[in-house]
Design a protein around this nucleic acid. Structure first.
Lengths: 127, 127
DNA sequence: AAGCTATATTCTTATATTAGAATATAGATC
DNA sequence: GATCTATATTCTAATATAAGAATATAGCTT
């Protein structure tokens, strides 16, 4: 993985916000969409950009696409370093904090990410 | 300083190479030009880009412009973190190592950066 | 002041990025 | 199989970035 490509991924505000959330764990598009409040197309395209460059992985689960950071053991050192740095830099920042707070409050029950126990109460749709 | 602006500065290979060298200390344009082997215009424009966003400072000394990272006490935390990360990520990289080696070998005597003692032997021109 | 050196700016062209609108697709459900 | 949901792609237009060529400028030196 080339260093400059990592920075190319990090040089857009929307992508930074996405990565900030993915640092908390895997998420499907609809939840990222819900937290950021940006259009579905915009979210999807930026996730595609990140995926094409190896910053995130994607796997389908039924209707949902689950995006995540690559498994820790497979992250090249430059990525490890920059993700740590990003986490550090976003820790006290208002926008990123708000996004994380919004994620924490969000109903995740529509997606396969919901904890097994809560599955029964799954919402019918995301939107 | 906005985080995304730092990344916008870091997302170009030429600018990464410039910053890699400036991490070693202040330098004038002609030495950066000499090490990178890129055109003077290209170097100057990228330095201008970095300066406009506060990643580097510039001061004139006679004919020379001396570029440097901002004084440590004035660096916002995001910049401190990202410069440390950059130093880490470039430490073992071939291109960046070669640039540093080339800088170490380079004759700096043309510029005001030459040590006082060596001033007498100053080269007439850079090129 | 004339000429030289180091550096910056302007102009132009090529390319990349970004976003929205409209549409397409994959997989589930009825 | 028709429909619905979540997500992706295509098309288009606006804007940003990057690089080179030519030229300009600031400050020395003579």
């Amino acid at each position: 993985m080339k260093l400059v490509q990592i920075y190319q991924c990090l040089c857009d505000e929307t992508r930074l916000r996405l990565l900030n959330l993915l640092l908390k764990g895997p998420l499907c598009v609809c939840h990222l969409h819900g937290v950021l409040g940006e259009s579905q197309v915009k979210i999807s395209k930026h996730l595609g950009y990140l995926k094409a460059r190896g910053l995130v992985t994607a796997k389908r689960e039924g209707n949902w696409m689950i995006y995540a950071l690559p498994p820790e053991r497979e992250r090249p050192p430059e990525l490890v370093a920059n993700l740590a740095c990003l986490q550090d830099c976003t820790a006290e920042n208002a926008v990123f904090k708000r996004d994380r707070a919004k994620l924490a409050k969000q109903d995740l029950s529509c997606s396969p990410l919901a904890a097994g126990a809560a599955r029964g109460t799954k919402a019918k749709t995301c939107f």
